[in-house]
Design a protein around this nucleic acid. Structure first.
Lengths: 218, 218
DNA sequence: TTCATAATATGACTCTGAGTCATAAATCCG
DNA sequence: CGGATTTATGACTCAGAGTCATATTATGAA
């Protein structure tokens, strides 16, 4: 039936529009101070309508997180197309991650927000939480593929299990990128500033360190 | 004057007691669902009194975070006393961090909570936020010292700047430990479970990877 | 011991903001 | 067109953070 098809599309579109509005408000006020009423206003809807599309505020925030991970994965997807050695691909994935967080800090905040949720009932049965997990799995897939390529082409030592290595790289890169993110949002200013360290060069060194660890020993 | 001395001590002691109560409630209900009233009850005080000791709920949570980082640093301090090579010390610091988070997940949550705060006004002029930064700086100091020792005793390659390396290790270890923490609190279950990976062995591999990267090339 | 003053404690109250629901408007379809 | 169903509204409820007028307790001078 064509009508219910169209209705579904319209529903999806409105959902996206609400997420747009939420992002805009959050960008201005931050996650904590963004109010549902403001988001509704921004979306030119009433508060009640928001709740027809998102069970609660958390669901809306999870939706932002899911959108973010989708976007990040599409960057990763682009990288994997390149004709480079496995080791180079890993480096490029790292850079893509870094750029993504630099350019879209709001999504990184959304990720953290999602990960910090303690109330498991908010996650259960949430299509958005489900989507986030799915995207995370996909991201791992990209890293794993790059690593496998590296092992095959000899640029990465084959003593590693690519899946295990992928998780380590993913997690440690997350830590580094988080530090960058905190730095640029004013946190952690003392640690890094006192040390007179530049974060960009820090990341380059980190990639070098990882690479030195992964590289095939001659 | 002896009396104002005593009063100060009592004030500090009561503050600690409130933090104890807060930790207990949070342990049962999680950060999000812990209510000031419950914490007050647990501490056998009225809600209003809590606000004589902590400007707001965030300040109380920051105090927990500060206490956590103090405790972590005292573990680090113990490690640094050992008579081991620099590289071994780094490994032991990593293990101490891991154990700490395993045994005190609440503090790790408090750290994340602190780092995720977007509203800068909550951090400004907060003695607790200040304390957290101080502790973070101290933690960096421990790592830096271990690295310097490793460079001196030849277990770590001298092509690295120990301060820069310290930040990288700190940040990447944070990412790894965070993954462990999420895993054990039910999050991220798909990524790791689908992959049939054991987190303990993951961490060992991570340390090996780092060590391989840092080790002096012969 | 007595009393004024200051420091500390209390919980009823205010206020903000998330989430609900009775009602209204719009859309669908026979 | 008119009854049914779907979507939208915003006044309302309710929980919980934070406040404040009032009460209690401690202190030190007379």
């Amino acid at each position: 039936m064509g009508i219910s098809e169209r209705k579904k599309r319209e529903k999806a579109r409105r959902q996206e529009a609400i997420i747009d509005a939420a992002e805009k408000v959050i960008l201005e006020k931050g996650f904590e101070s963004a109010k549902m009423t403001e988001i509704a206003e921004e979306a030119e809807l009433s508060k009640g309508t928001l709740y027809l599309y998102f069970r609660n505020k958390t669901a809306l925030y999870l939706a932002i997180s899911e959108r973010g991970s989708r976007k990040l994965n599409s960057q990763f997807h682009e990288v994997l197309k390149k004709d480079r050695s496995g080791l180079e691909l890993i480096r490029m994935l790292g850079e893509a991650y870094l750029n993504f967080v630099n350019e879209n800090p709001i999504y990184f905040n959304a990720f953290s927000h999602y990960e910090n949720l303690q109330d498991r009932t908010l996650l259960a049965d949430s299509q958005f939480a489900h989507g986030c997990e799915e995207q995370a799995g996909e991201a791992m897939g990209y890293i794993t593929r790059a690593l496998q390529k590296g092992i095959d082409d000899g640029s990465i030592d084959d003593r590693f299990d690519p899946k295990e290595l992928a998780v380590m790289i993913w997690a440690s890169a997350r830590g580094i990128v988080q530090m960058l993110h905190l730095q640029s949002s004013g946190h952690y200013f003392r640690i890094l500033d006192d040390m007179d360290l530049n974060i960009e060069s820090l990341i380059i060194s980190f990639l070098q360190l990882l690479e030195a660890g992964m590289e095939k020993k001659k």
